[in-house]
């Protein structure tokens, strides 16, 4: 079964520079992939190749069932691209701007009018139709650029920094829109530096460095792979003292305080009930036993660290 986004050994050279190196990705319909990486890692070049703006030097890309090198126009018709910089025409107004793109996509004017009204409403821009785009705030511009990317109802969305420069409220609105779009069965790639946003939105995460995908998987898979077993925190009523000795051998103690201890457990479902039972038998009163939340940021930094050492 063909996925809406599929790349195989995708490589892009600019003269002597290898911008993207052997990237293989697959994004299913109804899935969000977050592409993370430092500046200059190759995210934007990858996105541009997926949008059929740049052609790969090697490898292949199929988007919405079309080869980007063979059917570039068909691909562009089916892709909504939110560019890193909004790139609006500041002397235009929102309706006029979107109608211009509607004409380019070959939408009929009635349909465009309806769609424009719907999108402006959705992104909270309906009250700003009298203003020139030059008067818009950064967040409003970003939202309009998002509306532009959605105007032709694309099957595939490529969003480069969708919430950058947005106030928290607007950012939330856009994030909710992305989740709505996912539920509409679209394949979405989000490039972002905002790791908590990536964790919130993405079903899978790919980390790119120096043009290569160095890690790929779900957030929990990546955490497991790069940060090891889940970390549990046990808090007891009173000093720990000898309670540490009640922990099973397979746990790995990471740190401890007067009345708490953190340890890594290979299989919390099996190990935790035994710990509770041991503590209860020894008369130690447990206050909490919970998993310590680990962030994607830790994973990201760990990946970068490991890659830098290699």
């Amino acid at each position: 079964m063909q996925a809406p986004i599929e790349t195989r050994n995708l490589t892009k050279n600019f003269d002597d520079l290898i911008a993207v190196n052997d990237v293989t990705l697959r994004v299913e319909a109804g899935e969000v992939l977050a592409l993370l990486g430092p500046n200059g890692a190759g995210k934007t070049t990858t996105i541009r190749m997926l949008a059929s703006i740049l052609m790969p030097t090697r490898g292949s890309v199929r988007v919405a069932g079309f080869d980007t090198a063979v059917n570039a126009a068909e691909v562009r018709r089916r892709v909504g691209l939110l560019t890193e910089h909004h790139g609006l025409y500041t002397r235009m107004k929102s309706q006029e701007y979107l109608a211009f793109f509607g004409r380019i996509y070959g939408l009929d004017s009635d349909h465009t009018d309806r769609r424009v009204a719907e999108l402006l409403e959705r992104f909270g821009l309906a009250d700003a139709t009298d203003q020139r785009l030059g008067q818009y705030s950064k967040g409003m511009r970003q939202k309009l650029a998002m509306a532009r990317a959605l105007l032709h109802d694309p099957d595939v969305l490529l969003l480069d920094e969708p919430t950058s420069a947005m106030d928290p409220e607007s950012a939330r609105l856009v994030r909710e829109s992305i989740l709505d779009l996912r539920s509409e069965n679209r394949a979405i790639i989000v490039c972002t530096h905002n790791l908590s946003e990536a964790e919130l939105l993405a079903d899978r995460i790919a980390i790119i460095r120096n043009g290569r995908i160095v890690a790929q998987g779900t957030a929990s898979q990546l955490m497991q792979d790069y940060l090891g077993n889940p970390v549990m925190e046990l808090r007891v009523d009173g000093p720990l003292d000898g309670a540490v000795n009640l922990l099973p051998d397979e746990v790995n103690i990471r740190e401890q305080g007067e009345d708490w201890i953190r340890f890594q457990s290979p299989d919390p479902q099996q190990v935790n009930p035994r710990i509770i039972a041991n503590m209860a038998a020894a008369g130690v009163r447990i206050v909490t036993l919970s998993e310590v939340r680990r962030s994607l940021e830790e994973v990201y930094l760990s990946v970068m660290d490991r890659e830098a050492q290699e």
Binding site: A73, T83, H85, G87, L88, I104
Partner: peptide, 14 residues
């Protein structure tokens, strides 16, 4: 320079 070209390049225009 104003970076408004890329959205145009992403459309089906030749």
């Amino acid at each position: 320079e104003r970076l408004s070209l890329e959205p145009l390049l992403a459309t089906p225009l030749t």
